[in-house]
Structure formats: structure tokens, C-alpha cells
């Protein structure tokens, strides 16, 4: 309710503010620069994709935002807090590459897991589970176990689990990477509808150009060694879009820009 009243102000406020951030992993062969001099501002209601070849640090950057990794230099704020404080305040929902559902819990109880940890009462839990399973089209599968469902359904359940926390910020790490093209298109469409409906901020890691362009309001192109931001592209596509937009010249132009950015990052790599 609060959110609805202040949407206008929130629209401009920074959810994630990253300045001169670096992350170095010490290894036996010397330091690995996973992230170097990252500057990024993500506003409320943005749909931001990180795209780049493997090893460019896109997942690492997402994990830094989620406080699953710690930056070694620079500053980062999530909702005006440090990542650790934001995590403890349960500021975000995180969707992993794999569904990571617990096989001993039914689908409904898997979605209820974060709510149990948050200490909600059973009536609220039941209501939120029902609502979020409806949202991802999994009503009727409450009593099934994860291993009785297809990969796409499992990933939808894991999205419902992240949404059940009711976070304003959704962090998604290649959530559809392991799924086939058709299922992936379908889930992309659903995710976009959800985003349009709820005005959540989404940070999405992918290595698919069409996926990034189709989903995002901003695309962050990254390149490896050291992991860094190569280009930030603002999308001028309308917020309401469906899959047919992928045939339009605007879409293709954006996709080309992203591809050029990725190529430039790669050629640098080959010279080095």
C-alpha cells in the first residue's frame, strides 16, 4: 500500500547504487580480478540485465548485490543499506540457475520455506503460497514433490518461492538457462507481465541476447578479464511488450548494439 502511494517518488530513487566496486579472488596463481571498477545505478522499477560471456563476472556482481560475495574495494548500497543489512532485512528474492527445491518438501511447502523462516503465521503462509503458485500457473500442483515435475515447472516453483517473500527487488541468475526455447519464451512472457503488474525492480543475469533485449529496460554489457562493464544500453522499447516485438526493427537494432558490445569485449580479450 505504501508502495502504491509513493510510486511516483520511488520511480527515481536508487535501489542499487554501486561505485568503483572491485572484487579480487586470491588464488595460488595470483589474484583473479573478477570485478573491476564497476559503477552502476539501478532505479526502482528498472528491469536490468547483465549480459556477457562466461567469466565476465555477471553472476559475481549479482552475488555481491545479494551479499553472497563481498566486494574487496569500492562501495555498494542496496535500498540505502549495506548488502549484508539488506539481506538480513530480506530486501530481495533470489532465483538461482537451478530450481534448488528441497526434494522432501511438496511444492507448496517449498514455496512456504522462506515464509516459515521469516516466522509468518500459518494462515498468511497458506494464503501467500496459494497466491504465488497461481501467479506462476502452478495451481493444482501443491501436493506434488519437485522430482515429479518437469524442469520448467520446477523453475516456476522456485520463482514463486522467491516472490512469496514479497520483495521489491528480484535478483535472477540465469533462471531459464537450462530450459528449452519454448518454455523459456513462455516464462519470459510471464516474467514481463509480472514485472509490469508489480513495478518490482529486477536484476537479471543472462547470456542470451534476445532474452536480454526482450526483457530489459536497461542492458548492462560486460566483458571478461578483468570483469567490467563495457556498455550500458537504455532500451526504448515500450514497457508493455509481447514476443512479436522480437521481429521489429527497433528490437533488432538494440540486439545488434548488444552484439557489437559483446564482440568488442571479446576482441579486447583476444588482443590481451
Amino acid at each position: 500500500m505504501y508502495e502504491a502511494l509513493t510510486t511516483q517518488e520511488n520511480q527515481a530513487s536508487a535501489v542499487i547504487d554501486i561505485a568503483q566496486l572491485s572484487l579480487t579472488f586470491p588464488t595460488s596463481d595470483g589474484d583473479v580480478h573478477a570485478l573491476s571498477d564497476i559503477n552502476l545505478l539501478i532505479n526502482q522499477g528498472d528491469f536490468v540485465s547483465f549480459i556477457g560471456p562466461s567469466g565476465c563476472g555477471k553472476t559475481t556482481l549479482l552475488r555481491v548485490i545479494a551479499d553472497l560475495e563481498r566486494a574487496t574495494a569500492g562501495s555498494i548500497q542496496v535500498n540505502g543499506l549495506s548488502p549484508a543489512e539488506a539481506r538480513l532485512a530480506r530486501a530481495y528474492g533470489y532465483v538461482f540457475q537451478a530450481a534448488a527445491l528441497y526434494p522432501w518438501r511438496t511444492i507448496a511447502r517449498n514455496v512456504a520455506l522462506p515464509l516459515e523462516i521469516m516466522g509468518l503465521n500459518s494462515r498468511d503462509i497458506e494464503q501467500r503460497v496459494r497466491h504465488n503458485l497461481e501467479l506462476v500457473n502452478l495451481s493444482g500442483f501443491e501436493k506434488k514433490y519437485p522430482w515429479q515435475l518437469s524442469g520448467g515447472m520446477q523453475q516456476r516453483a522456485s520463482i514463486a518461492r522467491a516472490l512469496a517473500v514479497e520483495p521489491d527487488l528480484l535478483l535472477m541468475d540465469e533462471p531459464f538457462g537450462a530450459l528449452d526455447e519454448i518454455v523459456r519464451d513462455h516464462l519470459n512472457e510471464q516474467l514481463l507481465q509480472l514485472w509490469a503488474k508489480t513495478n518490482k525492480t529486477v536484476v537479471f543475469v543472462t547470456h542470451s541476447i534476445p532474452e536480454a533485449v526482450y526483457l530489459s529496460s536497461r542492458i548492462v554489457v560486460m566483458s571478461p578479464r578483468p570483469g567490467r562493464i563495457h556498455d550500458i544500453i537504455d532500451s526504448d522499447l515500450p514497457r508493455e511488450r509481447d514476443l512479436s516485438i522480437r521481429e521489429t526493427p527497433e528490437f533488432l537494432a538494440l540486439a545488434n548494439r548488444v552484439r557489437d558490445g559483446l564482440r568488442a569485449g571479446h576482441s579486447y580479450d583476444e588482443v590481451a
Binding site: A66, D67, L68, R87, L88, A89, R90, Y92, G93, Y94, F96, Q97, A98, A100, Y102, L113, P114, I117, M118, V165
Partner: peptide, 14 residues
């Protein structure tokens, strides 16, 4: 337990 499952619990601040 897999690292990803530990990460999951961490994101819930368990």
C-alpha cells in the same frame, strides 16, 4: 547439502 542450497538459506537470512 549443495552450496546453492546453503546460498538459498543465506538469502532468507536463516
Amino acid at each position: 547439502a549443495q552450496p546453492m542450497q546453503h546460498d538459498l538459506m543465506k538469502t532468507y537470512a536463516a
